[in-house]
Structures are given as structure tokens and as C-alpha cells.
Amino acid sequence: MTMLASLTDLTVAYHRASPPSLSGVSLDIASGEILAIIGESGSGKSTLVRALAGLLPERARLSGAIGWPGLDGAPRAGRDIGYVFQDPGSSLNPVLTVGEQVGEGARRHLGLSRAAAEAEAARLLSRVHLPEPERLAHAYPHQLSGGQRQRVAIAGAIAARPRLLVADEVTSALDVVVQAAIVDLLVELVRADGMTLVFVTHDLALASGIADRLAVMAGGRLVELGPTAEVVAAPKAAETAALIAAHIDLATPPLVGGAP
């Protein structure tokens, strides 16, 4: 299996005084794999993927190394790495039409003309299963539902045909039914195009349904890494075991009985 990216002893601190948000993380990302990064609020999972995608704020101090053996050189944001954020309401530009912003990646990175980019945008919108893509391309983000907006954000992120797609808590603002559909869409897209997916979530169960490997973060450290089935069946880190214990599904014993 070829390696797309390799992180070595990555440490990130936002403030001089406070402890680092990420300490000594080493991790290889295989080409074409679905890697889920899980952990609770403040565990460092978003800092990790922002560092990977080169999206840390300038004041952040980074040490360690990020290598890209799977690419010809340093990755170009938007071209080699597509990034989907948690809240499409704030990641999409409210004054551009959906088609303009989905097509922008294709124009800039693939050198398409305006007309070709427009056609490409409609094709991408249909790939993310939005209805009537030609008509929808002329809509503005506020006219869409949360789930539709997230589909638009995904279409924009894959427009330049990146090697790596990062999905950072993309389903946490969505209801469970829409969430399941978005996850299915991501898997479909990365498998069809041979993309690598780094899927960040606090939801272990959601991650376990799609990921080849799980990386568990806690307190800025990578506390466990392994194939999904192994990690879930026999967690080694206490933090992983705690996440598994806190999981609630339809087989969990209810906290209340039949009648009050």
C-alpha cells in the first residue's frame, strides 16, 4: 500500500503559555484509505487535520514534520486537499450562487473556462445527488436546507479532484437521517474516485461504520490507532474504552422502565 502522507512527532501550540493542542503525533495515512479521527471536544482532532491541510492560523506554532510521499511536492490547498467543514452555513459564501462556488475550484485548478466550469458545477451537484442540478446551481446557500448545503460544500471540495478529502465534523449539525445520507455520499465518492478520506468525528459509532482505521485522540495525543474492527472489539486505551462505553444505540438497556 502506498503512503499519501506521513506525520512525524507533530506538535501544535496556539498560545505560548498554554499546553500544546497537539503533542507528538506520528501517523501515516495510506493512499485510498478511510481514516477516522475520533475524540471528544478539545482532544486535538480538529487541530490535527487543520495542520495536515495547512489551515492553522499564523500564530500557531508547529513543530515536527508532515511529509507527502504520495504527492509530487507540497500539497496545494483546494487542489490536492479538499476540506469540508462542520457548518456549511459559514463555509459557503452567502453572496455567490451555489454553481459559482462549486465551479470555482474547477476553474482555478483545472483551468476550465467559465462556461465549462458552469457545466462541471452542474455535474458535481448531480454527483452529490442534489435534485435539478442546473436549476440549483443558480440558487444561493440560504435557500437550501442544512443537508443540501453540506452536499454543496462536498461538491466544491471535490471539484479540483483532490487526492485527499478531509471531512471535519461534517455531520454533527445534521439530524441522524441526513447524517447517514451524507456519510454514505462521502464513502461513495471516495471509493469511486480512489480518494483518501480523513473523517473527523466525535461519534465513534458513525466512524466505525465507514472507516478502515480509527485514530483515537485525547488531550492532544494520539492514544490509539488501528484497524476499526480491532479497536472496537479490543480497545487498548482507556479513552477508547470510555467512548465505547458511552455509546448509546437501540440495543443499549434503557435508563427507565415501561411506565413511570
Partner: peptide, 27 residues
């Protein structure tokens, strides 16, 4: 009643909600 409704869903909405609950794979 909670247990009865989930054991025998009568509406498409509930069937869809049941289907969307992520299960812990590999447990």
C-alpha cells in the same frame, strides 16, 4: 410505549429513524 413502538414501527418516518441509528461495528 417506547419498547413497543421501536419493536414494531408503523410509520415510514420511524423505520427511517431506526435505520439511521449508527451501530458500533465490530463490537
Amino acid at each position: 410505549p417506547a419498547a413497543a413502538v421501536i419493536a414494531a414501527p408503523a410509520s415510514d418516518t420511524l423505520r427511517e429513524l431506526i435505520g439511521a441509528v449508527p451501530a458500533l461495528k465490530g463490537n
